[in-house]
Amino acid sequence: MCQKILMPTDGSPCSLQALEHGLDLAKTLGAKVHFLYVLENPAQTIWIAPESVPYGMELLEDLRKAGEEAIKKALDLARAKGVEATGEVKEGVPIPTIVEAAKEYDLLVMGTHGRTGLDRLLLGSVTEGVLHRTSVPVLVVRCR
């Protein structure tokens, strides 16, 4: 059954809603949870001019701090619900990093905004990308 649940998070309100549902499920099942925040290095996804490299490093550090804060918030939530949990910030590209990590787990729990049309095209969906690439069952929580 589900003994190990992976819950990727980006710290957004949508992600927190998914964590709430996932933690309730984990408590019911007596499962352990692992939170994953994927830190995407902006220098690898956008072009950074040589003169902006110092700011690029500051941006990466700010993003790392945001990731650590998201993991801390998730761990605090798990502790409050009485669920055994661990968490990490891992540098990488979100979809392949989550898909690779998921191989160690029985279930993934992720939130989605349910965007359609141009929003979906421009903003993409990590959850949808993971759904199409993983063989691990995924509980998708549609955000309000």
Rank of each mutant, 00 (worst) to 15 (best):
C143A: 10
R142H: 12
E69K: 10
T134D: 01
M1G: 06
M1I: 03
L16S: 13
P13C: 09
L59S: 05
A70W: 06
D119G: 10
V109G: 04
Y37H: 12
L63N: 06
A70T: 02
Q17Y: 01
R64Y: 08
A31H: 02
A43S: 09
E91C: 12
D106H: 08
T134F: 05
F35D: 03
C14W: 02
V53A: 15
T112N: 01
D62L: 15
E100K: 15
C2W: 13
R115Y: 10
R133P: 11
A66D: 03
G30L: 09
P137T: 10
V130Y: 11
H113M: 08
Q44Y: 12
L25W: 08
P8N: 15
K27R: 15
L131D: 09
T116H: 11
T134W: 02
L60T: 00
L75V: 01
H132K: 11
L139Q: 13
V126Q: 08
A43C: 11
T86Y: 07
G87C: 09
I48F: 12
R120V: 07
I48A: 14
V99T: 06
G92R: 07
S135V: 14
V89N: 10
A102M: 14
L121C: 10
C14M: 05
K73N: 15
A78Y: 02
R144C: 11
Q17D: 02
A74W: 00
F35V: 04
D10K: 11
P96T: 03
L39D: 01
T45H: 06
M110P: 03
V93G: 09
G87Q: 09
G11T: 04
L19V: 06
C14G: 04
A85M: 05
G67H: 00
S12R: 06
A85F: 04
S15C: 09
L139F: 12
W47P: 02
T45C: 01
I48D: 12
Y55G: 06
E88W: 12
G11I: 03
G82C: 01
D24W: 03
E84R: 13
I46H: 14
L75N: 04
L19N: 03
P42R: 09
T116M: 08
A31K: 05
A49I: 14
L19A: 02
Y55W: 06
Q17L: 00
N41P: 05
G30W: 09
S12G: 06
I46W: 13
G30C: 07
E58K: 05
I95W: 11
D24H: 10
G22V: 00
E51F: 11
D76H: 06
E91K: 13
C2H: 14
G67C: 06
L139M: 15
P94L: 03
W47T: 08
V89I: 05
M110W: 00
E91Q: 14
A18C: 03
Q17C: 00
A49S: 13
K27N: 14
V140N: 01
